[in-house]
């Protein structure tokens, strides 16, 4: 027998034309164990209030329309089971909100212009001379095809994008979905615009270096795209293709290798100096003095090394796969 439960839903209601502030309305509904969040939205609309608005189409996790937040968790409504959500949050009351309340237009419908403009920014299409009447396909090995596969499963739902804290505080950040899209093409052996794309995603303040590595995107993505993994791919390709500019971000990544080669461990003052350059250190003087006062700074003469450092040095020599020239 299927079981049912009565749950309370606190739902974000808002009409940008008439309302100054949103209101949370309460609906108590009987839900069965197989029901998904989208079933709840449909029930509210079809049995309680027809004016309740949200986006949906395919109802089985492939069209990307129905992104929302439940108790702060960024989801597509047609994939998450209601009981599981209630159990996860150990509650009988779930809060249903749009992906980003600040962008709400009506109830759960948000203005996604920001999301699509990022999508546009990475040249989201294969750049190649297209043979309009081909008699033979490009030969692509299964391994090469598999490289693209994960990123190609993205349905542009925006779940990761609206879960990303870096996007939230920096509206210019391209964000996980579009960066995964960029990686989808930079890993495609048929694409001719790899370098253009790497240039776009390397812009400081917007691109891959603004990711805070929180893994929210990978955790939230309903399609297993692993956007942060794709961002790492872009980082790697940046160095492989000698597209890395000589700046604070690239030096910071490279600096770890130098530090490890020198001491095995990181000299934290040195990594800041190496990344920022000696002049760049100026802006860290305040924090540096605070730290010094608290006894947090290891003086160069006190910096000690890992034991068996020669092993580390040897491995760095033999296992390095890229070099950094710095444009």
């Amino acid at each position: 027998m299927s079981t049912t439960r009565t749950l309370r839903f606190r739902v974000f209601r808002f009409n940008a034309e008439t309302d100054y502030l949103p209101a949370y309305k309460i609906y108590d509904l009987e839900v069965d164990e197989h029901e998904l969040m989208l079933d709840v939205l449909d029930k509210i609309k079809w049995t309680k209030d027809g004016s309740f608005s949200y986006r949906r189409s395919c109802r089985h996790g492939i069209c990307g329309s129905c992104a929302i937040k439940v108790n702060g968790k960024s989801i597509i409504a047609c994939k998450d089971n209601v009981f599981e959500l209630a159990d996860l949050f150990e509650t009988d009351e779930l809060i249903i909100e749009p992906s980003r309340t600040e962008r709400a237009v009506k109830d759960l419908i948000v203005d996604k212009k920001d999301f699509w403009s990022k999508y546009d920014a990475v040249k989201p299409y294969l750049v190649a001379e297209i043979d309009e009447h081909p008699v033979k396909e490009n030969l692509v090995t299964p391994e090469d095809a598999e490289l693209i596969n994960e990123a190609d499963q993205c349905i542009q739902c925006g779940v990761c994008y609206y879960a990303c804290p870096a996007v939230e505080v920096n509206p210019d950040f391209i964000g996980p979905a579009a960066l995964a899209k960029a990686a989808r093409f930079t890993t495609d052996v048929r694409d001719d615009a790899k370098l253009d794309r790497l240039e776009i995603v390397n812009e400081l303040g917007k691109g891959i270096w603004d990711c805070v590595k929180c893994y929210e995107c990978a955790t939230a993505c309903p399609k297993g795209v692993d956007p942060i993994g794709k961002i790492t791919t872009l980082h790697n390709q940046t160095f492989e293709e000698d597209m890395a500019e000589d700046n604070v971000a690239t030096r910071h990544a490279v600096g770890f290798k130098h530090a490890i080669a020198r001491h095995g461990l990181l000299d934290e003052t040195e990594i800041v100096r190496y990344s920022e350059g000696t002049f760049g250190m100026v802006k860290h003087i305040g924090v540096g003095l605070d730290m010094m006062r608290a006894g947090k700074v290891v003086m160069p003469w006190n910096m000690h090394n890992s034991k068996n450092l020669d092993e580390v040095k040897k491995l760095i020599k033999s296992s390095s796969t890229t070099t950094f020239k710095g444009k």
Partner: peptide, 26 residues
Amino acid sequence: LEAASCCGASHLQDFDDFLSVVLNAR
């Protein structure tokens, strides 16, 4: 583990993913 080296701090992987795995394997 006094012989341990830096984990790479999630940054070394950006420059050289393989190297970072090798060092952590060590």
